[in-house]
Design a protein around this nucleic acid. Structure first.
Lengths: 247, 247
DNA sequence: CGGGGATTTGATCCGTGTCAATTACAGTGG
DNA sequence: CCACTGTAATTGACACGGATCAAATCCCCG
């Protein structure tokens, strides 16, 4: 598991540097579905790295409702701001059971200071997260059908990049209610819209597996332009499952 | 004008440092309304600092439509990613005539290297921008009435912090169409919703001036919690109009 | 005085929310 | 192994918020 973090974190860092990193990384912890890692308003003094499961950034709204602002997949960092001493403006929640590495502020700073390249990698991640955030906001202007289609396209790509997709399918252990919270639509409508996508022959969902039956048409429908998911710094290569192991 | 940038940029930087900064800052340029400073996909090799006017982050959608992702007010930076070499995933546009300082990549890096405190200030700005972005996304789950109310609350505070509000009013030289692009609703509905706010006795708009006639009730309606606009790093004081000049 | 964009208003249509009820299913305990 | 229970998925009926289309001012500017 830890190799995964190293591959993402340590890309471009010397072998010695990677050993140094590995020493400093605490063992992953397991969290139950629904566990809140960080609350809005907190400064939790550590950063998190998702090894397994799906976490989220979320905010609570009036009436007990909730919005999901981002999905955090394996390989994603979160609460970096908090680790640098900033107040969190949103919650970090485990939407499924999660395996997560936490990095205390002190160690985090050590790591950054010792490995400038690591800082670049992180900056890249932060910018990518911002780009995804903006894309989500832009999507809110589209119909719910396009929105779901777009989210599925995004997740398909993000999942495949971390080796968590097969053929044209991936595991998405989220309820339709949670999808609704992320898309800003009711769970009832999520259900109907997914059926629409099935009837259009683009996506089938069963159990918790999403099968994209026609990616090309799905992308057209969603007006999906993949480039926002590219690494913001052209010079930074990101880890991909096909890479040679670098250790 | 440049003092303004210095106050924002150079908070906590020595007097000598501020002089050094001032030397390096090029003269502001004037741009017409509608001018696109940076296009999606570009790497423009410079950062921008808004001195006067309102700019925006925007994306183009299908059918010639457009989404506004953020408003950039005087005192805001933009295209920092681009200045660091990243590809822009959105456009930066002047929504009104603007006076803007551009900082070429080389100088930008010099400045950062020479003044760590400046980097902290910028990081603070970036985090604040992210927080606003997330809040906008969260707001999309609310009714258009709440959305407009929330945007007005936010702009009221941001404007007042830079000394651009009087009493309970501020100048907002945007068309209802542009407000719609930012809120994800049609201009016709913006119009009707603004009338609703007037009828509720909370906001009046005339010419391009927004008058908040009952901020308390407006905040309640919008479920507005100001804290997301606070400086993310508690240790970083931001420039405010009531501060002693620091030069 | 004329012209073009912005605001305003009216009428109508449709996408989604909401409420409610049913079904499917997984986990639990007897 | 099966009844019991709670949660998620599904379906139907209905109401309503906003979009859309059109037309009528309004108003700034040349």
């Amino acid at each position: 598991m830890t190799e995964f973090l190293l591959q993402r974190l340590g890309k471009g860092v010397s072998a010695a540097g990677q050993a140094w990193l590995e020493e400093r990384i605490t063992h992953p912890r397991q969290f139950k579905q629904g566990h809140e890692l960080v609350y809005e308003g907190d400064t939790c003094d550590e950063a998190y790295f998702v090894l397994d499961g799906i976490a989220s950034r979320s905010k609570h709204l009036a009436g007990g409702r909730r919005t999901i602002l981002a999905f955090l997949l394996p390989g994603d960092f979160c609460a970096l701001d908090s680790a640098l001493g900033a107040r969190m403006d949103h919650n970090i929640t485990c939407e499924t059971p999660c395996s997560i590495v936490s990095i205390p502020r002190g160690r985090f700073r050590e790591m950054l200071a010792a490995h400038p390249r690591l800082a670049t990698n992180l900056a890249n991640d932060v910018l990518l997260g911002g780009a995804i955030q903006r894309q989500w906001l832009a999507n809110m202007s589209n119909s719910s059908l396009k929105r779901i289609a777009h989210l599925i396209c995004e997740l398909m790509i993000r999942m495949s990049r971390i080796g968590l997709s097969e053929e044209n399918s991936f595991l998405l252990p989220l309820t339709q209610h949670e999808l609704g919270e992320a898309l800003g639509i009711s769970s009832v409508h999520v259900n109907r819209t997914l059926q629409q996508l099935r009837d259009l022959g683009m996506v089938r969902t069963m159990d918790r597996v999403v099968v994209v039956t026609n990616l090309t048409r799905l992308k057209v429908l969603a007006e999906f332009d993949e480039s926002y998911l590219d690494t913001p710094f052209p010079s930074v290569e990101r880890f991909s499952p096909t890479d040679e192991p670098s250790y």
